[in-house]
Amino acid sequence: MSGIKLLLILVIAVLIVVLLKYVQIKRQIRNLSKQMTDLTTGKSEKMLNISLVDKDIEQLAAVLNQYNEKQRQSIASTLRHEMYLKESIVNISHDLRTPLTVILGHLQLLKKENLSAGQKQRIETIFNKAERMKELIQTFYDLSVIDAKEVTPVREDFNLTNLLINLITENAPALEAKGISPVIGLPDYSVYLHSDYGMVERIFQNLIINAIRYSSGSIKIDLKQGKEKSAIFIIENPIDSKVEIEPNRLFERFYTGDKSRHNSGTGVGLAVVKLLTDKLGGNVFAKIENDTLTISLEIK
């Protein structure tokens, strides 16, 4: 009888040990599951804890750690490739814009020559295609900027007046093609700014192109020095009264007031203006009064 009791006690003891180990294993499985969830959701970057009571679970955790490390390397490689691609798009778009501007300028001059009707038609076709190519290059740049998670300003002192004059000169073929002679208001002195030259150049370029594209007759540009070394830039252009534009939505991605898209706008340019202006600590807003669109920009 005592032997049966001893056997029963032994069986109970074994069951208790097995139950305790089962509870430990369950707890560690839940812990591993939580760690994996934290890893996949980005809440944690720590490797899985492999100091476990069960060797099989420990081996599984080690395999999962190897998988996680490969995933990290793959993601890092993809991010490096994306950054390189975006930088390449920015550099290529900038490099292509200058020769295209020269081409457009010479085509504009050729259109004034004494040419035959057929020659004029060919020149006009080339000019329109070159303009379209310039717009596409700018769109590629804008999309690369708007998709970038990190856009960090690199600030320097530069002459903002000269930058604006250069951009107006660069866009002279497009202005002339639409018969627009911009009214430019500049102070008697040069306006200087301590900011990111490339970002400010892109902001001004997009605002000028937007005005050219949607203007129904003229463009007015004003630049002046603001308070505390800020700069204020205002650009106005009349718009077609038939085109419904919501000023408070102009800086949204892919918003275009012209639903017919006959002006080939993508709705990206002004979104980039807003993004870069925010990065520079500035303000930009739009209003429409008497069929005139006014965009006011302050860069601090």
Rank of each mutant, 00 (worst) to 15 (best):
G282R: 00
L223W: 02
Q225L: 09
M47G: 03
A76G: 01
A130L: 04
T125L: 14
L280I: 09
N159Q: 10
Q225I: 04
S190V: 11
S195A: 15
K111I: 02
V273R: 02
I239K: 02
G3T: 15
D291S: 10
S190I: 13
L293K: 01
P153D: 02
L96A: 12
I235G: 01
D54Y: 08
G118W: 05
V183Q: 15
L32R: 00
L79W: 03
R122V: 12
I209V: 12
Q71C: 05
I209R: 11
S51H: 13
A148V: 03
V145T: 08
L276Y: 06
K55C: 09
Q59W: 14
V243A: 03
L164K: 01
E170M: 13
K224Q: 13
L136D: 03
E124T: 13
V151H: 06
T98Q: 12
D222Q: 09
V200I: 11
I9C: 15
I208T: 06
Q121S: 15
N171T: 11
I219S: 01
K120M: 12
V14Q: 09
Y67S: 05
L186F: 03
Q121W: 07
G42N: 07
T294Y: 00
I25V: 10
K46S: 15
Y67E: 13
L280D: 07
A13G: 06
K134R: 13
K112H: 07
D157Q: 15
T277Q: 10
V243E: 01
P173C: 05
K300V: 08
P182E: 04
I126W: 04
D147A: 11
I92N: 10
A286E: 00
I221V: 06
L275D: 06
